[in-house]
């Protein structure tokens, strides 16, 4: 908790960091309250006063962002899409860092044969083509938010593991590790009590980048038609627009989901970078 506060405090110091945190908070509110405050049922086909289906209606007071080919309210769909984006992104980032950090810690600290085996496995995962692998896994296991998280985590932990391992390799030679060893601390205690807290900041930066990448990937999965059929996501809105072949007549259908993804992911990147600059002041270019 204290660590989280220090993280937020560090990011808050930079103007871009502050702005991005506010944006992230807004998205978080949308994710929590979105489905409750959405003006319409996102799957409801809306009819106009003349009882005709509101196909591709432009933005209006009733439908802020217009309607889809099926007469569905786009603003409501957008509000429903915030939750899966943050949920899938957040869980994947957590899984990625949890696995990557542990593998990196163990491989880096113990070295030798352990390191060799773990790094060979990591290399094998590095050879897996990212999106194609996820799509194959999804087509074999079925499409749901859970399987998407698992499939993405499976191919994302690998880079975190490598980064953390490299850091641990230099940390393990530090005097404080030798000091801990002299006091009789076990290997496990050294890894998790002494070294882990020192790689946590780096892990956090990695988590931010994993979150950004997971949100984009989740949208791409939805766009390719492999998303969870039971939830409305920004990717699936764009998939519907693309599949309808009428999106070019309705920019209000195509533009908002992309803008939402772009702003959310940019905010995540800026938070990650602001924190990185606190860790490494040279990046500020002073």
């Amino acid at each position: 908790m204290a660590f989280l506060l220090s993280f937020l405090g560090a990011v808050w110091k930079a103007p871009t960091g502050r702005f991005s945190l506010v944006l992230l908070a807004l998205f978080l509110v949308a994710a929590i309250l979105g489905p409750l405050v959405a003006p319409h049922d996102p799957m409801l086909r809306n009819y106009g006063p003349d009882h005709k289906l509101l196909r591709l209606a432009g933005p209006s007071w009733d439908h802020w962002l217009g309607t889809t080919l099926m007469g569905r309210d786009i603003a409501s769909q957008m509000l429903h899409g915030a939750r899966p984006a943050l949920l899938v992104g957040g869980l994947t980032a957590f899984g990625t860092v949890a696995i990557g950090m542990n593998i990196g810690l163990v491989a880096g600290y113990f070295g030798g044969r352990t390191d060799d085996v773990l790094m060979r496995i990591t290399d094998m995962f590095l050879g897996l083509p990212f999106l194609p692998f996820i799509i194959i896994v999804l087509s074999l296991t079925g499409r749901s938010l859970t399987t998407i998280v698992v499939a993405m985590t499976l191919v994302m932990w690998r880079s975190t593991a490598r980064v953390i391992r490299a850091q641990v390799l230099s940390l393990r030679e530090m005097p404080f590790v030798a000091a801990a060893r002299i006091t009789g601390a076990s290997d496990l205690a050294i890894v998790y009590r002494e070294i882990a807290p020192n790689v946590l900041p780096l892990a956090l930066v990695n988590a931010a980048f994993a979150l950004a990448w997971a949100i984009i990937t989740e949208a791409s999965i939805g766009f390719l038609g492999f998303g969870d059929p039971n939830s409305i996501t920004w990717g699936s809105i764009l998939y519907d627009a693309y599949a309808s072949q009428t999106m070019y007549r309705a920019p209000w259908w195509v533009v908002p989901p992309g803008i939402a993804i772009m702003v959310l992911v940019s905010a995540v990147y800026f938070v990650g970078r602001a924190y990185e600059e606190v860790l490494n002041p040279r990046l500020r270019g002073i």
């Binding site: 950004a212 984009i216 949208a219 791409s220 766009f223 990717g235 764009l238 627009a241 693309y242 999106m247 070019y248 920019p251 195509v254 533009v255 989901p257 992309g258 993804i261 772009m262 702003v263 959310l264 992911v265 940019s266 995540v268 990147y269 800026f270």
Partner: peptide, 22 residues
């Protein structure tokens, strides 16, 4: 560059088709 990197590639492609092709 950050904004571009944050946008999904498929969406940028859709916008490009919308503007430059259509």
């Amino acid at each position: 560059a950050t904004a571009m990197q944050s946008a999904p590639l498929f969406w940028l492609s859709m916008l490009a088709i919308l503007v430059f092709s259509i």
